[in-house]
């Protein structure tokens, strides 16, 4: 089974990987709010945030180029809205939209790439995110692999008979039904081992002094960047 790269990245070892999921989630939330609400001086804040996130990626021993490339997945979506702003003559607004979306995606990507999913979900749960929402996220994430694997099998089977596998409606219907059957089997196997709706984690969440220091430092740096650049410009 092919696994997504993010899952492999999240299992590496670094100072960022060692931090508690809650500390990283809160620090990311502060950064997202800072980026999202910035307006005056954003032209200076954007490169500063970009440099900060790049430095964090390198310090976390994540491949910077690949991370930047993966964060670009949001660009097609935000560019649609940016194009609407451009057509309306709002060039700065369009630029803000694209740069804010990209920086936000990069920040979230670093969080996911440095935190194994069970720990991230447990952290979000202890921060008060509804359990049902987390369950749905957990299963979507798990079954993405299943669907991807089924699609790969179908593509190989089609290629083996000299055909090209296209995402036509018929193929999608078959893919859906096969994935559904596979998902049923996985769910059954989970129930057989006592699954009662909550993915257990081995490492109990421990919020240490180093996590508190990381959170305080990250928030202070983010706010200092924002306020400092706003005053300077």
């Amino acid at each position: 089974m092919h696994h997504v790269v993010l899952e492999q990245w999240s299992r590496r070892r670094s100072f960022l990987h060692a931090r508690d999921a809650r500390a990283k989630t809160l620090a990311t939330a502060v950064l997202l709010i800072t980026i999202g609400t910035a307006d005056r001086g954003f032209e200076a804040l954007a490169p500063a945030c970009f440099a900060l996130l790049g430095a964090v990626a390198l310090a976390a021993r994540l491949p910077l180029g690949a991370a930047l490339q993966r964060a670009a997945v949001v660009l097609p979506f935000c560019m649609v809205f940016a194009a609407v702003s451009l057509l309306g003559g709002e060039t700065r607004r369009a630029a803000l939209l694209v740069s804010k979306s990209y920086l936000s995606a990069l920040a979230v990507l670093l969080l996911v790439a440095s935190t194994p999913l069970p720990q991230l979900l447990r952290g979000l749960e202890s921060l008060g995110v509804p359990r049902f929402l987390l369950m749905v996220t957990q299963f979507v994430y798990r079954y993405l692999f299943v669907i991807s694997e089924q699609a790969q099998h179908m593509r190989m089977a089609a290629a083996g008979r000299g055909a090209r596998f296209r995402a036509a409606a018929g193929a999608l219907a078959v893919l859906f039904s096969r994935s559904y059957a596979r998902a049923e089997s996985i769910h059954r196997a989970m129930l057989a081992r006592g699954f009662a709706g909550r993915l257990p984690t081995l490492a109990p969440p421990a919020f240490r002094a180093s996590d508190a220091a990381f959170l305080a430092g990250a928030c202070a740096l983010t706010l200092a960047l924002r306020l400092g650049l706003e005053r300077w410009l």
Binding site: M1, E7, R11, P116, L117, P118, R142, R182, S185, I186, R188, A189, M190, A192, R193
Partner: peptide, 11 residues
């Protein structure tokens, strides 16, 4: 289960 991939889902 017959297919071990159904059973092994943790990282």
């Amino acid at each position: 289960f017959q297919d071990s991939d159904d059973q092994l889902f943790m990282p």
